[in-house]
Simulated assay, not measured.
Amino acid sequence: MYKNIILGFSAAFLVACGNPVEVTQPPVNVTHTQSTKKNLQRYQPVTISSRVKEGKNNKLTAAQCQLQADTFRAAFTTPAIVRIPIYGVSSEHLLVTCKIGNRSKTVTREPYNETLANVRSSGSGGGLIGAIVASGIAAGRGNRKGDTWAYQDIQVDFK
């Protein structure tokens, strides 16, 4: 019985989140524009897509894009998966500029502490008290050396 309840919630969650963007091209590697003394931890695949508003609907569409950071950049057509370097707490802010015809849109993205986010969300299963306790732990712990940093996927919306 519990298995069916869990499956039902999982299916509802997946429907609510929408369909993932289908990327047919190989992942795009960034070009490093200058050397850095930052400690490279890994490369994270980040999906970047673009939408155009048509009436009341949003339609996925291809756009020519440039991604820029302090020490790297990339050029690609959306939808794309771009392999972004992760430098822990020193991970860089991203600036993504996309063009469709004569229209241009710029989006910024900051890295976030995934470890800290997981600590905060771990208390949500314990109701209000659990959420309060987890938030207090997260606030007191701050950023630590071994924490995992990441970027969320990027959606560029043309209105």
Rank of each mutant, 00 (worst) to 15 (best):
P45M: 06
G126A: 05
A74K: 02
E92P: 04
Y112L: 07
S35Q: 14
P79Q: 09
E110G: 04
A138V: 07
R141D: 09
P26G: 11
R109H: 08
A69E: 02
L14W: 12
A11S: 12
A11G: 05
V30E: 04
V52A: 08
E22W: 11
A134I: 11
M1Y: 13
F13E: 08
T77M: 00
V52N: 03
A138D: 01
I5S: 12
T33S: 15
E22L: 14
A62Q: 03
G140R: 07
L40F: 13
V46K: 01
K105R: 12
S91H: 07
K145W: 13
L116N: 08
T106D: 01
G8P: 02
I86L: 12
I86R: 07
L67T: 04
E22M: 13
D157R: 11
N102Y: 07
V52S: 11
N113E: 03
E22I: 15
S124I: 09
A139K: 11
S90Q: 14
Q68C: 04
Q44K: 07
Y2F: 15
I100R: 04
F72I: 04
K105A: 04
S91P: 08
Y43V: 08
D147K: 06
R109E: 13
D70Y: 10
I86W: 01
D153I: 09
I154E: 00
H93I: 15
L116P: 02
Y112A: 05
G146L: 14
F72P: 03
A134N: 07
E92Q: 12
V15D: 02
P85G: 08
Q66T: 02
G136N: 12
G136P: 04
Q152L: 11
G55N: 13
K3P: 02
I48P: 06
Q41C: 11
A80C: 03
G146A: 14
A63S: 11
T78R: 04
E114M: 11
L67Y: 02
T115I: 02
Y112S: 03
V107N: 01
I84V: 00
T36Q: 12
N118W: 07
T33N: 15
A75M: 06
T77N: 02
L95I: 15
V107S: 05
G130K: 05
S104A: 10
T47C: 11
S124L: 13
Y112H: 09
N143A: 15
